[in-house]
Design a protein around this nucleic acid. Structure first.
Lengths: 148, 148
DNA sequence: CCTGAAATTGCTCAGCC
DNA sequence: GGCTGAGCAATTTCAGG
């Protein structure tokens, strides 16, 4: 499942993780490769599924979601379908990880207010018992993995 | 702290959240705006801090991190400095949220193997008691908030 | 993987609505 | 605020080596 990546591949990945909107020629300059070779490398990383996408990140507070919460969901039984439907509908749920342990799911939820969070928690409570922690601050900037 | 955003701003944000590498003219076409107007809008969203960056997302398994874990850290006392140092050094820690509740921090950690995860947990254990859940699957694609 | 040239495309900035 | 159009710069692409 893992792909063999050399130094240049990793240099490309590092650059695009930091600044995804640079041109391929600028990227080539930074990793010391010609534009054509850079283009081919990037296309390859994309088609191998190493790079899965390029996304703008927004400041949640500034776009109107000042409340962020981590929710753990204890989900008895196996009927995951209804939860998946909720995930599809509710864009306030930004992330959903299925995990080992007592709490089957860990979610990241954005809300416009505590009242809004309460509504969302009500919907999640239909699925099982929840544990909610409100986020004070995001201690890290967005980043991805480095070369192992 | 919040910024007033109209429909076009949101259309721009939606597009860039999905596909951050499109050109400004292509973006303009999609949101039905001229290239110059689009450019000005995007620059504005950036300088207001609404858009904080553009980042490539990689498949953790394919780049050599097949193990992902959610770690909750119960952190007694107020000396956060040492933890911040660890965060800076250890790129395996992808995210760190400071939260309300018994567990002061929730972290997302990528590891090359369970043995590697064990090493990382050892380092985190220096700071307080930890609860670790290994992630089976990421149930959602990367996505951001929608218009409230 | 590189170079070099051609073609396309995108970007910027007036002037104007 | 936004549009158009021109001029300019840049990137992308594709041979051939």
């Amino acid at each position: 499942m893992a792909v063999d990546l050399d130094d240049i591949d990793w240099a490309i990945i590092e650059q695009l993780q930091q600044e995804a909107r640079i041109s391929l020629s600028e990227l080539g300059r930074r990793v010391r490769l010609s534009a054509s070779a850079t283009t081919e490398r990037v296309r390859n990383l994309e088609s191998l599924g190493v790079i899965t996408g390029y996304h703008a990140v927004v400041d949640l507070t500034r776009v109107g979601y000042p409340v962020l919460a981590v929710v753990r969901l204890k989900y008895p039984g196996n009927r995951h379908q209804p939860l998946h439907r909720l995930l599809a509908e509710r864009r306030e749920i930004l992330e959903c990880l299925r995990t080992t342990g007592d709490d089957c799911y860990t979610l990241k939820v954005a809300a416009t207010s505590m009242a809004h969070l309460e509504v969302l928690m009500g919907e999640l409570a239909d699925f099982g018992s929840t544990t909610t922690s409100v986020v004070y601050s995001q201690t890290l900037p967005a980043r991805g993995p480095a070369r192992p």
